[in-house]
Structures are given as structure tokens and as C-alpha cells.
Design a protein around this nucleic acid. Structure first.
Length: 429
RNA sequence: UCCUCGGUAGCUCAAUUGGCAGAGCGGGUGGCUGUUAACCACUAGGUUGGGGGUUCAAGUCCCUCCCGGGGAGCCA
């Protein structure tokens, strides 16, 4: 019977087959220790010279790192084996050889590893990060689905920039131009007028020439949008959402977090309420910490780190100078110079993981904003229609998925949190 | 685009003031019955990123180009 390694505990004493790859091998004369990997875990298989046919023993000695193989043997409990179970081998079958596998169980440089991302994926650490990525995505979808948010995915091809074309990827589209989407928000605003609560989750593209640990040119964004929701409600949602998602990953992916040597006490502190400070408060904190931040600007990377480290859990900064925020954000009725916008910063220098706002729902105000931002009204007629026909107060946010996964995993760079990272200087493999 | 650091064996790195280019890992061969990135012995492996220059002599100094890391701006 063929089993997966993570099912071994149910098959102690039984004769089973494991199909997988050779993670590593050690030998001591008449014993070979094969470390098997099958995607569900690691397991040691012991090949004893006197217990297997001579052919099988010889073959075991010749197996090389990352060859694929099927091993038959009896499962036993064994604390010395990774995973706690061991296979006493009766037969070994080589399926696919692997000569001179380039990624050895030693240190490598980042360029070497990124050039071999297709193989690097097999390593323990990358496997753990991507497993947590998948769990995080599932937790996010489950949270929203169970609360009545409808998943409606927005287009990737867009006819024009919603916020200027300078940082969009341009592509040829039957003789005219199209751009790759950098957000699904405007389309989701149309969708909520039909469904009240929606979200989109997919890849977005930014042609920014950013070469930092927090940037990818292709990254995933989760964007919930909700009718009848004001800024305070939006912050409640962001907070509740993050608390539940982090708790789920802590609960179900403890093993992977351990492989990553993540300090989980930091994640366990992610409990309500998150501090909510205004942009003006943040300005004061930065001044107290000797930042050369200029009031009225956006926060730089080091400013975000200072602010994030000022609190023991994610912090929400709201009511930003309207001048530096997007055209679609509603002005604060109590202070017209401020936008009803909020950013959530993660601790430990992971920076902005969420940006949200209450949207402008008044037709005349929105038309004024378009003019101020010098945006061509003709491309936004459909968007203005949403204010002409039954406008409602509404809000939403965009969550940078790789930054969130990077924060949960404690990785230094977002490039490890996506299967094949796309960066300014890297399109391959 | 700018700032900054780097490119030496398959990989990770060392090489003093400009003076014989080395180690560990990986590969190969042999040994070892409980190994945990196993260990021990032997062994092969080099156009020092490309081009030009200074010098008796350049991995090392100068010029130039290429490639990459970190960061700034911009942003999630």
C-alpha cells in the first residue's frame, strides 16, 4: 500500500510504499540512511545490508540527492528519525536519476538560488514558506466567504490608468494600448452596488523601479469592498480579519513556523484592539524618535519601521493629508484637508501591509477630485455612474499578500513568499 | 534614475604592503552496522565577470563595460 509520509503514524508495523525524492543520504558501511521527501514531510529509511537483496543495497549506496524513488518497507516509531517515524527498507526502486543536483545541503548565495528557483522550492525552508502562503490565502478566503463576502475577480487588462500610467505595464492590445491592472478596487466598487459585500484576490502589476526587500513587480492583492461601511467600520474589519487569519496560521501551521524559527510570541500578541492613531499622532511619534520626516509627506521605509516598532501589534494610521492620497478617497467632514484613509503597518519592519479608505460617494466631489488630479473624465464615466445611480457610503481595503505572508513567516524579503518572484531585475525562471 | 557593497574552483569564502591562487562543502575512489548538514583517507577540479592600461610583476592599483546584493525615491 502506498502512503504519504504524514500518514505514517497510522501505519506503524505495516508494510508500505513511499514514493518521493531523496532529500539526503548518509552511510555507514553496511547501513544506508535515506532521508525521503514526498511533499508532506521527511522520513528516514534504513537500508540494512543483511535485510535487502544485494542489488537493492548496492543501488541504495548509489542514490544521489533529489533522485525520485519508490521505497518499500515497514514503518516503525523512531525518535531519531525526522518526523518521528522510520522505514525499514525491504526494497528500493529508482524512478528518475538526479546527477549533480546543484543545491547542496550547504549555504548558497541569493543569486544562485533565485536562478534555480525551480529547484530551490524543494528545500525545507521554501516549502514551509509556500505552505504558509497557501494556508494564509485559504484563511483569508474562509474569513470573507463565511461572512457573506462574494468573491468576484476583477480584470487584469485595463484600458487606462486609474492613477496615472507611469508605473503601469503597458501592453499591445489589437492595435491599441492596454495596461496591466494595479488594483481591482474601482471594479469592486461597481460590484458592491449589486452584492453589497465583495472581494477580489489576484495578481496586480506595478512597473515601479523599486529594488527593495518589500517590492515585487507582480504581487497578489486581496481587496474587500463593502457598501454602507464607513472608515471606522473598515478599520474594525481590517483588525478582526488580521486577528483571525494570524490565529488560524498559528494553529494549523505550527510545524512550518518552527522550521522557519519564527518567534511566534510576536504573532500571538496579534489580538484586538490594534492601536489606531491619526497621521498627526504618527508625525509626533516620528519627531520624538528623531526622524527627519516632513509633515505632509508619505512615510518612508525607515519611518514605517519606527512606527511599527512603537507598538507590539499592527498599528492603524488614519486621516491622512488628502493631497498625498488617491482621488477616490472621501474627505474627512471634520477636516477637509484630510482623507478618510487608513494604512496598517506590521511590526518588525515589514511595513505597510494594508491600505484602505472610505470612498468618495458624492458625484460633484468626485468630479472635482478627477479635475484636481488631472484625470481624463471620459475614462471614469462608468465610475461616476456609480454615484449617479443609487450612491451609498462605502469603504474597502487592499492587502499586500506577499508582505503579509512575509510578516507571518518572518522572512527578510518578500521574494521568498511567492512561487516565482518577478522583480525589477528578475523575470526568470 | 541615484547612492552603496560585491563578482576568485560546481557552491560558500580566504589570499597581509602589488610578489608561487588556497580552504571547507559538493564530485570521484576506498573504508565504516544507528547516522542526524555523519565521519575518516586519497583524488580531480582555476581564462580570479569582460575589455583596456600602469608595473620587472596585478585577484590586488587605474579606466571602462556587464551582472548581482542592499537601500533611496515610488509604492502594497
Amino acid at each position: 500500500m502506498r502512503i504519504y509520509i504524514n500518514e505514517a503514524k497510522h501505519h506503524v508495523g505495516e508494510q508500505v510504499q513511499i514514493a518521493g525524492w531523496l532529500y539526503n543520504k548518509r552511510s555507514s558501511g553496511k547501513l544506508h540512511f535515506l532521508i525521503l521527501r514526498d511533499g508532506t514531510g521527511l522520513m528516514q529509511a534504513v537500508v540494512s545490508k543483511k535485510e535487502v537483496p544485494e542489488e537493492a543495497f548496492k543501488l541504495s549506496g548509489e542514490l544521489t540527492q533529489e533522485c525520485s524513488l519508490i521505497v518499500t518497507g515497514k514503518v516503525s516509531e523512531e525518535p531519531r528519525s525526522p518526523g518521528g517515524f522510520e522505514l525499514h527498507v525491504s526494497d528500493v526502486e529508482l524512478v528518475g536519476k538526479s546527477e549533480d543536483y546543484p543545491i547542496t545541503p550547504k549555504e548558497h548565495g541569493i543569486e544562485f538560488l533565485l536562478d534555480r528557483r525551480h529547484l530551490w522550492l524543494r528545500s525545507k525552508r521554501q516549502h514551509a514558506i509556500l505552505r504558509i502562503r497557501a494556508e494564509t490565502a485559504a484563511a483569508m478566503r474562509d474569513y470573507l466567504n463565511s461572512r457573506g463576502y462574494v468573491n468576484l475577480d476583477t480584470p487584469i487588462f485595463t484600458p487606462n490608468a486609474c492613477e496615472g500610467t507611469s508605473n503601469l505595464f503597458e501592453t499591445e492590445y489589437f492595435g491599441s494600448k492596454a495596461y496591466l491592472a494595479q488594483s481591482g478596487q474601482l471594479y469592486s466598487e461597481a460590484a458592491i452596488m449589486s452584492f453589497s459585500k465583495v472581494y477580489c484576490f489576484g495578481p496586480t502589476f506595478r512597473a515601479e523601479k523599486s529594488k527593495t526587500r518589500r517590492h515585487l513587480t507582480e504581487f497578489w492583492m486581496l481587496e474587500p469592498e463593502e457598501a454602507w461601511l464607513d472608515l471606522e467600520g473598515c478599520m474594525d474589519l481590517m483588525e478582526d480579519f488580521i486577528v483571525e487569519v494570524v490565529a488560524r496560521v498559528l494553529d494549523t501551521r505550527a510545524e512550518e513556523l518552527k522550521i522557519l524559527e519564527r518567534d511566534t510570541s510576536i504573532l500571538e500578541r496579534v489580538q484586538k484592539p490594534f492601536p489606531r492613531i491619526t497621521y498627526d499622532d504618527a508625525d509626533r511619534i516620528l519627531k520624538e524618535n528623531e526622524s527627519d520626516f516632513v509633515y505632509g509627506d508619505d512615510f518612508g521605509g525607515t519611518d514605517e519601521t519606527i512606527l511599527g516598532d512603537n507598538f507590539d501589534r499592527p498599528v492603524m494610521i488614519h486621516r491622512w493629508p488628502a493631497d498625498i492620497k488617491a482621488f477616490y478617497m472621501k474627505r474627512d467632514p471634520d477636516d477637509y484637508s484630510k482623507a478618510l484613509a487608513v494604512d496598517m503597518l506590521a511590526p518588525e519592519g515589514h511595513g505597510e501591509v494594508i491600505g484602505g479608505s472610505q470612498r468618495e460617494d458624492d458625484l460633484e466631489e468626485l468630479e472635482k477630485r478627477l479635475k484636481e488630479h488631472d484625470l481624463p473624465k471620459k475614462y471614469f464615466e462608468w465610475y461616476l455612474d456609480l454615484r449617479r445611480y443609487g450612491t451609498v457610503p462605502h469603504s474597502g481595503f487592499g492587502l499586500g499578500f506577499e508582505r503579509t505572508v512575509g510578516w507571518i513567516c518572518g522572512t527578510k524579503h518578500v521574494r521568498e513568499t511567492i512561487l516565482f518572484p518577478r522583480m525589477m531585475y528578475r523575470l526568470e525562471p
